[in-house]
Design a protein around this nucleic acid. Structure first.
Lengths: 140, 140
DNA sequence: TAATAGTCTATTTAATTAGTAGATTTAAAA
DNA sequence: TTTTAAATCTACTAATTAAATAGACTATTA
């Protein structure tokens, strides 16, 4: 399951996607409209900014705005940033790999294969799901 | 990510799969061979028994043994039992559905679709992954 | 220079996951 | 019938992670 943090991030990004190239939106507004605790949202937006997905402007009239194009931000990137690995097992993760504690012979492990398949399909589907995609579906 | 509990359950079941129809195996043995804390394993095996995947025999010479055929126990069933929902969002879960707190119009939510796709593919792959499958791959 | 809005550091609270302890029940074998 | 081995049940405790909060600091602009 995705964490609340990750869900909040997705909602905030879609919200900013709707305002792409319309200047900065301040945290307060996003927090209210998306029902996200403001302080929590601050931390989330900061991470997204450090990851170069958002930019921010300080001071009066400041706020956050989408830096990348909505078509170039996908769910994989957001989930990895917020929650870490996509895979269901650490020994199958591409970005957060860790060996299984007790597994002697990884190549010969009957369990891994299934989870590799899941990982690949998940990556495929979620990397096609961009903010643009999500916004389009929202409109219908 | 799967919980340790779930990983332990999978390993214990594969272990019992290897001994299918060879009489009861006691907890102690499984715990030692699979490096699982015994008391924790007890609770896990009990759940698997209540779910009719395992049977047990009390008293001397007792232990646990696979009740279902190895070909009839798949990873979906184990994961649902141990960790709950397969889906990445509650509003997309078949067995553990919950509405999103702030979502007014679920049918019109652009986020859901992607996660439904992931759910379906995950279900497809993991329901094909049975203990029998896993054991076969182990042998190679 | 006052007001606004993001940034940073630290803490607190809540929830979940993992692991432990010990008494009880059951069944087989001596 | 008694002993012993094994599962069962109830109740904790510890550790980890997720979620939320507080407040001081910094930058910007009108």
């Amino acid at each position: 399951m995705l964490s609340k943090k990750c869900k909040y991030a997705i909602h905030a990004l879609v919200y900013l996607g709707e305002r792409y190239q319309q200047g900065p939106v301040h945290i307060q507004e996003i927090a209210e409209k998306q029902h996200i605790p403001k302080k929590f949202l601050e931390a989330i937006l900061l991470e997204l900014r450090n990851a170069k997905i958002l930019h921010s402007k300080k001071g009066k009239g400041g706020g956050y705005y989408l830096y990348k194009k909505p078509a170039e931000v996908n769910l994989i990137e957001i989930i990895r940033l917020m929650d870490g690995a996509i895979a269901m097992l650490p020994c199958v993760s591409l970005n957060y790999y860790e060996a299984c504690e007790e597994c002697r012979d990884e190549k010969n492990c009957g369990i891994r294969d299934a989870f590799m398949g899941v990982r690949d399909e998940t990556l495929r589907i979620l990397s096609e799901s961009t903010l643009e995609q999500i916004m389009k579906r929202q409109k219908v």
